[in-house]
């Protein structure tokens, strides 16, 4: 466990970046309290812009800041970042080859009590359709701290899903975490569990422990970067284990499972199962309730692993 929440790591890392890089700017759309970015504003008021409840304008202004040479990090809830500002992000930021770092907070079930209106299960899917966009979600505080500077460094726009609350830490400070490269957290020869994000990577680790007690050895991969996809790593483990389970706090039809399936279909047909939202809208509840309601649990990963192993061996 970290002593800081994810959002504190986000803000502190941006402050560190901004201290050495005067191009870094911060944008908010009346969610500064939620994202916890006030310390950045206090330190760099001249580089902080809050546009009010106007997400389309936020992404448009961010695109203009980028055209003026700046590197804006613009955050709002993921539902608004992806759905409401899609055309602004598509055209003014990406088509215009700008350098906008869009951040969608409260991904999937982490929207909790804000419920179905605020629960993005489709943001990765929308973002995947934007050519050359980099899409990622850190699974813990250490990887967030390590991925953010790489996103700032990347020449081009990025979309980051950000779990705001929680102090999970499964990486150590010395681990190498590279944007665009999956991290193998555990080696196993029977099956590969690929997970993305703050909610599902710990579930995948826990599921692998349960499976291990039952004599099934699973590889666990943290696929923090969804685009560009680490194809070599997936193909390597598809060959090695012959079966995969893909876990995401997201709609099954268009996220990481879809990306992995597209790759396998063309390059190396291999049995693969999804632990993801099955064509449903969001709803209210605690994140724990919601994980259960949508099957985003270690128990479901274990179940899907057994199904995929039957397919592999059958």
């Amino acid at each position: 466990m970290s002593d800081k929440d994810m959002r504190e790591v986000y803000t502190d890392t941006l402050i560190e970046l901004a201290e050495s890089n005067d191009k870094i700017c911060l944008m908010e759309a009346d969610l500064m309290r939620a994202t916890g970015t006030n310390p950045f504003k206090e330190k760099f008021p001249e580089r902080t812009f809050n546009v009010g409840v106007a997400e389309a304008n936020m992404v448009g202004v961010a695109s203009g800041l980028s055209a003026g040479g700046k590197i804006p990090f613009a955050a709002t809830f993921g539902c608004f970042a992806a759905r409401r500002t899609f055309d602004q992000f598509f055209i003014s930021a990406n088509y215009a080859q700008q350098n906008v770092k869009l951040v969608g907070t409260d991904p999937g079930v982490s929207a909790g009590f804000n419920g179905g209106t605020h629960m993005p299960f489709e943001d990765i899917g929308l973002m995947r359709t934007i050519p050359k966009l980099v899409i990622f979600e850190a699974s813990d505080t250490v990887s967030l701290k390590k991925l953010l500077p790489q996103a700032a460094e990347h020449k081009g726009s990025t979309y980051m899903r950000l779990q705001r609350k929680g102090k999970n830490t499964h990486y150590s400070e010395s681990d190498e975490i590279i944007l665009g490269k999956g991290n193998v957290l555990k080696e196993g020869s029977d099956v590969t569990i690929i997970a993305t994000g703050y909610v599902m990577v710990p579930e995948a680790i826990a599921a692998a422990e349960i499976l291990s007690e039952e004599g099934i050895n699973a590889t666990v991969i943290d696929m923090h970067t969804i685009k560009p996809l680490d194809k070599d790593l997936i193909l390597k483990y598809a060959e090695k284990t012959g079966a995969l389970v893909v876990c995401e706090n997201h709609q099954k039809s268009c996220g990481l499972f879809a990306a992995v399936s597209e790759l396998l279909a063309e390059e190396r047909p291999t049995p693969v199962q999804a632990v993801a939202v099955e064509d449903l809208f969001g709803q209210v509840g605690t994140p724990a309730f919601l994980q259960g309601a949508y099957g985003l649990t270690k128990e479901n990963i274990v179940e899907k692993t057994k199904i995929v192993l039957e397919r592999k061996n059958g």
């Binding site: 389309a56 304008n57 202004v61 203009g64 055209a67 003026g68 040479g69 700046k70 003014s92």
Partner: peptide, 25 residues
């Protein structure tokens, strides 16, 4: 050409961003 445009309604926001960048610089 200083900004890519065409999807109507977006240019004024971009212009604001360009003006903010100028002020910072």
């Amino acid at each position: 050409i200083d900004m890519t445009t065409g999807s109507l309604g977006q240019g004024l926001s971009s212009a604001i961003g360009l003006a903010l960048a100028m002020r910072i610089d």
